[in-house]
Nucleic acid binder design. Structure first.
Length: 296
DNA sequence: CATTTATCCTGTAAGC
DNA sequence: TGCTTACAGGATAAAT
């Protein structure tokens, strides 16, 4: 599902195909897609018609598109959201939620979302620098996402600060990786992949991690995210595609996620799947031994 | 305050 | 064959 590499791939596509274009019409097709827009669906469209997109930015799994009037469109793909550039004659699918037409008459932008966990909103002052005191790292982000931590590909991300915060936590290491207020952009897929690379079991208590283990972990997180971006992200099915409808191919490089019973590519032991937060955690039983005592 | 759990959704696949 | 159930899981409100 869309995590940092998938969102970054989409950001790059939007930057290429949408930046500089002026919105001509906005068509809302499902109220849930704009539920985060406090001023309501009608205001969402009113705030955008006639505005020009000046760029596309990202923090973690959030996107935002600054506009020429100091507002910004904020977007989150949730589980199944897609942003697609389509010629006018491409038929609407059943999950079309929002359509943007542009004044140049070029390809329209569609927000398509099967499970409706994603959505778009307009942040009135979102294109303007936020008070650095309340934004993690002091970076400019819309106020609505100021609670989201820096992601590990952000130039302002400081490894040692993250490791200190990680060690202060009293929880399991995978839970910490998924906490977007501690480190953003990592979801279930890349958490499992990074833990495998760092040879750490997901249930390891954060407070007991050594500094070298922590450094190995953040290095692994950064490596796997970077490699996946290079591959265009991970596509298991048609639910994740880039803005032109193309799949990424990092699924071929996954070591453990979704590979229960298959051999570990490092040691050959069958990959283990364990229940984790009403989901699954995949790991290698040999490379990532369980922590000694019962989990905290 | 820190941390965990329940909830929102729908399509696919597995089970009876 | 057709119905039911489990599962996928990001963010957030609510609970502990």
């Amino acid at each position: 599902m869309p995590e940092l590499p998938e969102v970054e791939t989409i950001r790059q596509g939007l930057d290429r195909w949408v930046t500089g274009r002026t919105i001509g019409a906005v068509e809302g097709r499902h109220p849930r897609a704009v539920r985060r827009h406090a001023a309501g669906p009608a205001d969402f469209a009113d705030a955008l018609v006639g505005r020009t997109v000046t760029g596309v930015r990202r923090r973690g799994k959030y996107l935002w598109l600054p506009l020429d009037d100091e507002a910004a469109i904020i977007g989150h793909l949730g589980m199944s959201g897609q942003l697609l550039l389509c010629a006018d004659d491409v038929p609407d699918g059943p999950h079309l939620r929002i359509r943007f037409r542009f004044g140049d008459g070029g390809p329209q932008l569609r927000f398509v979302d099967q499970r409706t966990f994603g959505g778009l909103s307009v942040s009135p002052g979102g294109a303007v620098l936020l008070d650095g005191a309340v934004s993690p790292g002091g970076a400019p982000v819309p106020a609505e996402i100021a609670h989201i931590a820096l992601d590990p590909l952000d130039p302002l991300f400081v490894d040692s600060d993250f490791l200190t915060a990680l060690q202060r936590r009293n929880t399991q290491v995978k839970r910490a990786l998924l906490d977007q207020t501690l480190i953003s952009g990592v979801g279930n897929i890349y958490a499992d992949e990074a833990l495998w690379r760092a040879r750490l079991h997901w249930a390891r208590p954060t407070s007991a991690l050594t500094r070298p283990q922590g450094r190995a972990l953040i290095g692994a997180v950064r490596d796997v995210l970077t490699e996946s971006i290079r591959a265009g992200g991970t596509s298991f099915d048609a639910l994740y595609v880039n803005v032109n409808g193309e799949s990424g191919y990092f699924d071929r490089s996954l070591a453990v996620y979704g590979r229960a019973g298959e051999p570990c590519t490092r040691c050959g032991a069958p990959v283990r799947r364990e229940p984790f937060m009403n989901r699954s955690a995949y790991s290698c039983p040999r490379c990532q031994p369980r922590p000694r005592p019962p989990t905290p």
